[in-house]
Write a protein that binds this DNA or RNA. Structure first.
Lengths: 346, 346
DNA sequence: CGTCACGTTGTGAGCGATAACAATCACTTC
DNA sequence: GAAGTGATTGTTATCGCTCACAACGTGACG
């Protein structure tokens, strides 16, 4: 047989991946019928469908995503922008998002070393170039939220873990309630007041936790000690611990997160202040290791995975148009009592 | 002016994003010239280039990634398959990879709850459907490596953190050397032998660390205690710690990772065995918190970020054809001495 | 027995970019 | 002054798929 004039000759060396036309030829149908089978459209005779499926298997055919995206204008891709995914919180949220999204979307990531205005906008721009269908920003810093306001609304965008009062679609943990709960618990134990090792002021979560702590103190009429601000790291907790250890009236400390609490515990131990006998300590997050600190840490549990799943649900709702307010309700954190806290004896 | 018969009328409501032809029309050139400007091809008059760039800016034009991918057969996308990205190691590697890749690639992720044969193959398949240009597998488990052997070589694939002896292209930390170094250090401090809280046997890293420990013991002629295997978690370290605390001859313990060491420290403290006076403890990884354990942990530092970067370099080399063996050299970990270890007094 | 409806299948026209090639123009160069 | 050279620009085909619509066959119905 002379080669047909249809163009593509079956070259030996270059194993070009099969395309829909190849499947159609092998199955003895038109390319459109193959497309119908692929997209599960009705009105294909079962027998025909079987032939097509067999041809697909035989050729190990895989539809070309780019060609499909070109015509449907859907990429089935979401973008997640996150600050340092090495941290437990962001990593857990990312994990929750990806697990929930994978059955319907690809998840593309952008990890930023800093959530400055420029970085966030660049990341959004990159994703728009990739034609993602939606973007989730794990944006715990005020600067990030500010940047998001400057984003054109050409693509659905959801923020997560950026405080409950952000002016954009978002899901969040009720940091304020969690912090108030922890503080109240310490006051109920008889402590006259509670000191606070705070997070960095540029983070909404940190501010809200400080707010919750302050609210609890005020409604109890307790003294309001100055906040010692750290940066979430154990190192900063350690430094704050040394400062607090010098103040004899400190009997209870609420830390902005568990890592800072770890550093604080070490500083107190070095100074000979026993926990919980002399000082009670509470953390925030309930990282998996918190139960194995010395002593095991009383802390406020955040369900990061659930947060990620809710963010995804909210985003999918926005992509499809119907905006369900339900998934925006803040996730309420829960106090986990361990042995780093005890009743204050006068 | 009557609307031209070129088809697309400028509809008011449906703001269709601008395409290359729109830019060309506005700039008064052909779409090909626009393409040339976009792809930085030579032989475009500076003046023309400026006109085109101005039109691009005015329309806020953004090239359509799908259309480009369709014709170039390049998606500028990489896939990263990882086991539980919540863990510090995988999260750090992912971070390193993404940071290194972003200037040239999009990074799509797949987090698996378990690295079984099926899950890995599914993830690879998903990525092939997305037409990624390469895949990195953060595959620390033997089962994952086994699964990778069954993958068709249609796309470049690199494994990272899967031990140094895996039969596929990979980069890794020299776990064996690190473990031997830690063990030798303890022996040099005068300990007659070193006990080992091991990781799960299904992980190559765990096996290699156990190997290194064993090698060091053997070459020193020391006794070889039975390995107590955990699962990386603080909880398992805690349980092993309770077992070891009952054995009076235990004076030094090498833990497979820092989290297990944390649990072990707590168990020893509960049993009244002081660290380092009664028992010296060494970890592995040097997570940021290790310096703030009680006492601060002597450990073996792994540079996960560097590992991620090397994995990316190796993958890019393979994509472009020239396979540089250089980046395959194992990363040598470093012993970080803190106060959880001390000389053994007879 | 013609017509209509419906289930099933095929045909042709794009989607928005790049690649290959042709066309034009300003200068040399002999 | 004709031909050749290289820079610049335009024209057309093509990537692999989905969409809109046309065409076909079959049975129900008047």
């Amino acid at each position: 047989m002379a080669p047909a004039g249809t163009g593509r000759a079956p070259v030996e060396g270059t194993a070009r991946p099969p395309v829909m036309a190849d499947v159609a030829r092998l199955a003895g149908v038109s390319h459109q019928t193959v497309s119908r089978v692929l997209n599960q459209l009705p009105n294909v005779r079962p027998q025909t469908r079987e032939k097509v499926l067999a041809a697909i298997r035989e050729l190990a055919y895989r539809p070309n995503a780019a060609a499909r995206a070109l015509v449907t204008r859907r990429t089935s891709t979401l973008g997640v922008i996150s600050f340092d995914t090495t941290l437990y919180g962001p990593a857990s949220m990312l994990y929750g998002i990806e697990r929930a999204a994978r059955h319907a979307y690809f998840v593309s990531i952008a990890s930023l070393p800093a959530l400055d205005h420029r970085g966030v906008l660049d990341a959004v721009d990159r994703f728009l170039g990739q034609a993602v269908e939606g973007i989730i920003v794990i944006a715990p810093q005020t600067s990030a939220v500010a940047a998001l306001n400057g984003v054109p609304a050409s693509v659905p965008l959801v923020a997560v873990g950026c405080g409950t009062k952000a002016p954009i679609a978002s899901v969040a943990v009720d940091n304020t309630a969690g912090a108030a709960r922890a503080t109240q618990y310490l006051l109920d134990l008889g402590h006259e007041t509670v000191h606070h090792a705070g997070g960095p002021g540029s983070w909404l979560d940190a501010r809200e936790r400080t707010d919750g702590w302050l609210q609890a103190l005020r409604s109890a009429g307790a003294a309001e000690p100055e906040v010692l601000a750290g940066d979430w790291s154990s190192r900063s907790g350690y430094e704050i611990g040394h400062q607090l250890a010098q103040m004899p009236d400190v009997t209870a400390v609420f830390c902005a997160n568990d890592h800072m609490a770890l550093g604080l515990l070490r500083a107190l131990a070095e100074r000979g202040r026993r926990v919980p006998e002399d000082v009670s300590v509470v953390g925030f997050d309930d990282i998996p290791e918190a139960a194995y600190f010395l002593p095991p840490l009383t802390t406020v549990r955040q369900d990061f995975g659930e947060l990620g799943r809710r963010a995804l649900r909210l985003l999918v709702d926005r992509i499809s148009g119907h905006d369900s307010a339900g998934s925006r309700l803040p996730v309420v954190p829960e106090l986990v009592v361990r042995s780093s806290t005890t009743r204050y004896r006068h």
